[in-house]
Computed example of a mutant assay.
Amino acid sequence: MNLVLIKVSSFLSIIIAGMLAGRTGKLGRRTGEAISKIVFNFTLPAAIVHAFGSANFTPDMLLLVPLGLICALCPYLITYVVTRHSSHDDRILYLMNISGFNIGSFGLPFVQAFFPASTVVAACMFDAGNALMMTGGTYAVTRVLTSGNHINHPIQTIIRRLLSSIPFDSYLVLISMAIVGLRVPQAIVAFTEPMANANGFLSMFMLGLMVSFSINEDRLHKLINLMSGRIVFSLVMSVAAFKLLPFSSGIRYIIAVLLWAPMGSMGPVFTLWEHSDHGLAGLANTISIFFSIIAMTAITVAYGTIS
C-alpha cells in the first residue's frame, strides 16, 4: 500500500508543479498544447509498445480487449443521448471526458502492488480495448457526431481520423500481433523504454497546465454533472463486471479496480483541440484522481481479505 500511495503522491505532485508553472507563465502561453502533441505522438505510443512488449498473456486474455472497448464506449453513447439538447461546447466537454480510464498511470500500480504477477497482464489487455477510445476514438467520433450535417461521409471521416492517431495505430498493430501469437522484439522494448518512462511525467505535468480553478455557478453545475456521471458509470460497470465476467475472482477484482481509474489524461487535450472548456476538463480530471484513490483502495482491501 505504501508503494502505491507514494507513486500516486508523486503523480499528484507533478500535477501541482504543472499548475504552478502554468500560473507563473514562465513556460509561455501555448506550452500545454505543445506538450500534448509530444505526448500524443511520441511518449504515449512508446509507452504502449513498451507495455505490450513486457507483458505475458494467454489467448483467453484477448477477450478482455473488447471488454475494455465496451466499458469505454457504453458511457459515451449514453452521454451522447442524454446531452442531445445541450450546447455544442457542453457536449464536447461531456463526451470527451465522461468515458475511458487512465489505467497506465494509476490503475496498473494498484494491480501490480496487490495482485499476482500472472494476472497483471489482464490490466494490459483491458487497457488495450479502453485505449482504442482514449487514444483517438473519442476524439474522432465526437468531431463527427457534433458537426451536424457538415460532413458528407461520416464513417470514412471517423476511420481516417482514427488511422491518423499514432497511439491508435500502435494498439491496432499490437493487438493484431497478439492474435497471431507474435511478440514485440525485446530490442524494440528496450529502444522505447526512455520515451515510455517520460510519458507519465509529461502526461501529469500537461494536465496540471490545463487545470483551471475559476468556478462560477454554471461551471460548478457542469463539473457536478461530469463527476456524478463518472461515479455512476464506474459503480454500475464494476458491480456488473464482478458479478458477470467468466474469469477467476482475481481477474474480476482487477477489472473492478480498473473501472474506477481516473479520467483518461487525453480527455482535456481533446477538449482543448476542440476549443471547449479544457480548464474545467483538467480540474475534473484532477478531482477524479481523489475519488479513484478511495474506490480503488477499498476494492484492493476487499480482495486482500479473501485472498
Rank of each mutant, 00 (worst) to 15 (best):
R230C: 02
T43C: 04
S13R: 04
I293R: 01
H50M: 05
I98P: 03
L73R: 07
I179F: 12
F11P: 01
M204G: 11
F115Q: 07
I38W: 12
F247E: 09
I166G: 00
F270D: 00
S238N: 04
F40R: 08
T135Q: 04
R219L: 04
F126P: 01
A113G: 09
N197W: 03
I289Q: 04
G28A: 12
S99D: 03
F40Q: 07
T286Q: 12
A140F: 06
L64D: 02
A178K: 03
I158M: 15
F106D: 05
I294R: 00
F11A: 06
L235C: 13
S54F: 03
V180K: 02
S212D: 15
K7S: 14
P262L: 11
E33M: 05
A241G: 08
A72T: 08
T83Y: 08
S234F: 03
A122Y: 02
D127G: 06
N41V: 10
Q112I: 00
M206Y: 15
G25D: 06
G282M: 08
T146L: 15
L132R: 13
I231M: 04
G100P: 03
A131V: 05
M19N: 07
M125P: 02
L95H: 08
I231W: 02
P154G: 05
A46R: 03
G304V: 00
V141C: 09
H275Y: 14
L62S: 11
L272G: 09
T192L: 01
T119S: 15
N130E: 07
S249V: 06
G25H: 03
I287E: 10
T300W: 01
